[in-house]
Design a protein around this nucleic acid. Structure first.
Lengths: 159, 159
DNA sequence: TATTGTTATACTCTATAACTATA
DNA sequence: TATAGTTATAGAGTATAACAATA
């Protein structure tokens, strides 16, 4: 039947924002260090792309270079990120998470995951199996293939 | 097995933001009238809650009253919303979508739904069935029950 | 000359505080 | 006195433009 994807699309459009709300609320409650959501996303990006440049981060997060420069200023001030000149190309900045930055990101992610797990535990085994299968399928068709870097676990934005 | 919800939680945390990115990108591309995402959400709220007051909207969207007042200013200026004093209580403002406002919201939602449907059409029938079942199950555990108003189709926030 | 990043400046969005009008 | 909304003002975040340093 051809109209079926339309029905599922409506369902996805209704339900996914609900889940996203829960994710965002949890992440927000964890912002102990008083960082913004773009800052949090930048931490997540650096966690997966150690030594990325300012331009890399700006492009991935979707900010201009000046904005990202200022954003990173804040992360450096808070001791979550280090900013060093690249040995090979002294124009580039090499961004790295500090221990505190890694710790912050990891614990925020863990807390969010736990929060989701508590909700999922309310479902039956077979419903959870459907969730697993659905997520695997959706991942295939929503994963941006052209991007050089995986956006996994980096996109809990905005707040 | 007790650890299973944890696995699905990780999967949900990885995949849901991907889908949300696609939703947001589509909505953003549709902002022909140059309105902000909170403004868009307000349109969606008013679409489901005709005649809501400024306070109602402010509480639902999560803005202060002054901020919502200013936000609505913009929507009124653009001809998407009307603002009238409530007949029974002249302190209250009654907010209503204009025809243009309804049209704008409806076409934005339709475009987003079509965009999702194109991706879902890439899946097998049985995968789509799993998606449908998963969304129904997730809706049950992520739907905020205490809220007086349904947040469905209103929560594609930020960008 | 092109690229990487920073500084200067302006605009949007949001909040808090103070105010007006109505109940 | 309490509630609904507006106006005034300030702070965060972002963008564009201009600049400095390196390739």
């Amino acid at each position: 039947m051809d109209s079926s994807p339309v029905l599922e699309a409506r369902q996805v459009l209704d339900v996914v924002p609900l889940i996203m709300c829960a994710i965002r609320r949890e992440m927000r409650s964890h912002r102990s260090a008083d960082i913004s959501v773009p800052q949090f996303r930048t931490l997540a990006f650096l966690n997966e792309h150690e030594g990325a440049s300012l331009s890399d981060a700006a492009e991935f997060i979707g900010l201009t270079l000046p904005s990202m420069s200022k954003l990173v200023d804040g992360l450096v001030t808070r001791g979550l990120v280090t900013r060093q000149t690249h040995p090979g190309d002294r124009r580039r900045m090499t961004l790295t998470l500090t221990g505190a930055g890694q710790e912050f990101h990891q614990s925020a992610r863990q807390a969010t995951q736990d929060c989701l797990a508590r909700r999922l535990a309310l479902l039956s085994d077979s419903d959870r199996a459907a969730v697993m299968r659905a997520m695997e399928a959706l991942c295939l068709v929503f994963m941006p293939s052209d991007e050089p870097v995986s956006p996994l676990s980096v996109s809990a934005e905005e707040g």
